[in-house]
């Protein structure tokens, strides 16, 4: 709680810097517009101003500051413009409309969640296999760790196009990329978790004559839960990135990634920024949901603080 004031102060400073940054970034367009409207600006002529620095132009033309925060296609939109666009495209549009961010967000979210479920499920199964089979551990584990250093995202376009050519379209290709990205963090974290009970605890279960299955259900699985949740938080964020990048190569018709791409094609900067904030909110909500589930689960298990 004692961090509230500092955090608010930092956010306020960031907003102030953002508004100030709009001045030099957008002043060239603002001056051109003003000159067309017949207002005297310093210096005259767009060609004259082209090579001047934004800061200098902003200082010599304080009368045009207001316009730098209110353009249609600014280089850097002001915070209130982004918020207005976010409000306009979420609350004011019907959710089925193609201009609604809720619609695009849902497309991305469904791919993310499907991929996350597939990736997590397969990751847990593989981790269980790894802790129970030495051969599997020694063959697969080094590759699982090495694959985390590889930019897996690079194969996203290929997966989309190849699946497209075999006739698989829509949700599934994106979900596969998401699954792939969330798969390895879960494997690595889960293996660590299933191995986390110490030798004394395993010995105790052996004195009870517990079978492998019982050891797994009563000791390994509960012990792995904190590790699983830590990987899930990494995994869901990776899944979202995967789904967004998966929307880029198909020419991007629907989804938050498509909003980013079409925005960059047509110079709709406000649209890009609002899509960016929508992804940020989505990521934050997803991570917060998992963190909440983690707190509740650990509390029920007596591990919470």
């Amino acid at each position: 709680m004692r961090s509230v004031v500092p955090v608010l102060a930092v956010v306020a400073v960031i907003l102030a810097i953002w508004y100030l940054a709009c001045l030099p970034m957008n002043i060239h367009t603002a001056l051109t517009n003003a000159e067309r409207a017949g207002v005297a600006v310093q210096p005259e002529g767009a060609a004259e101003r082209r090579d001047r620095s934004g800061i200098g132009l902003a200082l010599t033309n304080p009368g045009q500051w207001a316009d730098t925060w209110a353009q249609d296609k600014p280089r850097l939109p002001a915070p209130h413009q982004v918020l207005a666009e976010l409000w306009d495209t979420t609350a004011m549009k019907k959710v089925t409309s193609k201009r609604s961010l809720v619609f695009h967000g849902w497309i991305t979210l469904s791919a993310t969640l499907l991929g996350f479920a597939i990736g997590t499920g397969m990751g847990i199964v593989l981790a269980i296999g790894i802790v129970h089979s030495r051969a599997m551990d020694m063959s697969v584990m080094p590759w699982a760790i090495a694959s985390q250093t590889i930019p897996i995202l690079a194969i996203a376009p290929m997966i989309i196009v190849v699946l497209n050519s075999v006739g698989v379209q829509g949700l599934l290709p994106k979900a596969i990329i998401s699954a792939y990205l969330s798969f390895f963090p879960v494997v690595v974290g889960m293996v660590k978790g299933l191995r986390s009970p110490d030798a004394m605890q395993f010995d105790l279960l052996r004195t009870y004559n517990a079978s492998r299955g019982q050891t797994f259900a009563k000791l390994r699985l509960p012990a792995s839960v904190p590790y699983l949740f830590a990987s899930l938080k990494v995994g869901i964020a990776a899944s979202l990135v995967g789904a967004i990048v998966g929307e880029l190569p198909t020419g991007a018709v629907r989804g938050l990634g498509a909003r980013l791409l079409t925005g960059s094609y047509y110079g709709q900067t406000i649209q890009i920024w609002s899509a960016l904030f929508a992804t940020a909110v989505l990521a934050a909500v997803l991570v917060a949901l998992i963190a909440g589930a983690e707190r509740m689960t650990l509390k029920r298990m007596g591990l919470g603080r």
């Binding site: 938080k233 964020a237 979202l240 990135v241 967004i244 990048v245 980013l260 791409l261 925005g263 960059s264 900067t269 890009i272 920024w273 899509a275 960016l276 992804t279 940020a280 990521a283 934050a284 991570v287």
Partner: peptide
């Protein structure tokens, strides 16, 4: 924790 790749177009 945010998908910062999204800043790429900007």
């Amino acid at each position: 924790a945010l998908p910062i790749v999204g800043t790429a177009p900007i």
